[in-house]
Design a binder for these strands. Structure first.
Length: 336
DNA sequence: CATCCGTGGTC
DNA sequence: TGACCAAGGAT
């Protein structure tokens, strides 16, 4: 019933092998699934195109310098994914190919329960129970599961298992996800268009939108910090952030140590006069940040420590995460 | 199990 | 306009 609907209504997405005659490329399936973690299809499309054009195979990606992969990922968010993509590609290249079972895929960096199941089912035709946020919502409504998330996950998984077919589990999973994306969404339930309308207990209850029940969210703290723009000979001083934590491993402007835990200390990385260029507001998942941007006003600054001079004219290619890209735009826009 | 980790779109 | 949310994973 769901598979028939999927055959008729499947979205045409770049990472889906067009006809069922050609087996999907595990590399493309894996890469798309990682990019799609907590990220919308629309946001992923240009990145998927860029990555697969530049690195058409997992071997090509494994051979790429980590710095280039991180820069190519800039703007997509959740940068631990990019670090794990690099590690995973190296492991797979060493193995010669992707593992073809859910259990072995699960051992790779960056592949959790969801992604291992999705790749096993979609790329290798394995029967696997694929549960993402879409499936959680559809299943919670389909079976009218009243327990709240995240506690309800066990029940949801058991129910998802009970309806997963032995064949075409990958299409089944993608069908559920397409359903959750376009028909059975968090804000709406277009039950009259749904292939499961006759068997859905959530619909029968009269109010499917209340499901799944979710725990209340915590308030977001607000933080302040400062980023520093140091320029010399038409080049700006960039640093590389530590491998873990916020924006880990990404190229960035120097800053004053702001974090989710607290404000920055306002200490500049260099002595001399500074001029305020303005403020950038940026909202992260778990806190809001007001980032002041300070421009060094001395003639030929000489910052110490690790870093590199990046040509100001090609700052867009530096692979700055969005927060610092905004800061750079703020400084450069003031010159027009 | 709770917390940390980005970003852009949507209403 | 601000709150909510999206094909989660690691710790």
């Amino acid at each position: 019933m769901l598979l028939d609907w999927y055959d008729a209504h499947a979205r045409d997405l770049p990472w889906r092998a067009a006809p069922s005659t050609t087996p999907p490329d595990p590399y493309r399936v894996w890469l798309s699934e990682v990019m799609l973690q907590q990220t919308t299809v629309a946001a992923v499309k240009p990145y998927f195109a860029k990555f697969t054009e530049r690195w058409p195979t997992v071997q090509a990606l494994a051979a790429a310098p980590e710095e280039e992969v991180m820069a190519a990922w800039a703007g997509l968010g959740y940068y631990s994914r990019a670090r794990n993509v690099v590690k995973c590609a190296a492991e797979v290249a060493a193995l010669g190919a992707f593992p073809d079972t859910e259990a072995d895929l699960r051992k790779l960096p960056g592949l959790g329960d969801y992604t291992a199941a999705a790749v096993a089912a979609i790329a290798f035709g394995r029967r696997a129970v694929v549960v993402d946020a879409n499936v959680e919502r559809v299943v919670a409504r389909l079976f009218a599961i009243e327990d709240s998330l995240p506690g309800a996950r066990k029940t949801i998984r058991v129910k998802a298992d009970s309806i997963t077919p032995d064949t075409r589990a990958g299409d089944f999973a993608q069908g559920l996800m397409d359903l959750g994306s376009g028909i059975c969404t968090s804000r709406d339930a277009k039950c009259l268009l749904c292939p499961l309308q006759k068997v859905c207990k959530g619909r029968a209850s009269g109010d499917p939108l209340r499901l799944p029940v979710k725990a209340p969210k915590k308030a977001k703290p607000s933080r302040t910090g400062t980023a520093f723009w140091i320029e010399r000979d038409d080049a700006v001083w960039l640093v590389k952030r530590p491998g873990k934590g916020m924006l880990g491993g990404m190229r960035s402007l120097p800053d004053d140590g702001w974090s989710a835990r607290g404000d920055g200390n306002k200490d500049a990385p260099l002595s001399g006069a500074w001029k305020a260029a303005g403020v950038v507001r940026h909202s992260f998942t778990h806190f809001d940040l007001e980032l002041g941007v300070a421009v060094h006003a001395e003639h030929r600054p000489a910052p110490g420590g690790e870093g590199e001079w990046w040509p100001t004219g090609s700052i867009e290619e530096a692979g700055l995460p969005t927060l610092f890209a905004k800061a750079a735009r703020l400084v450069l826009a003031a010159r027009d």
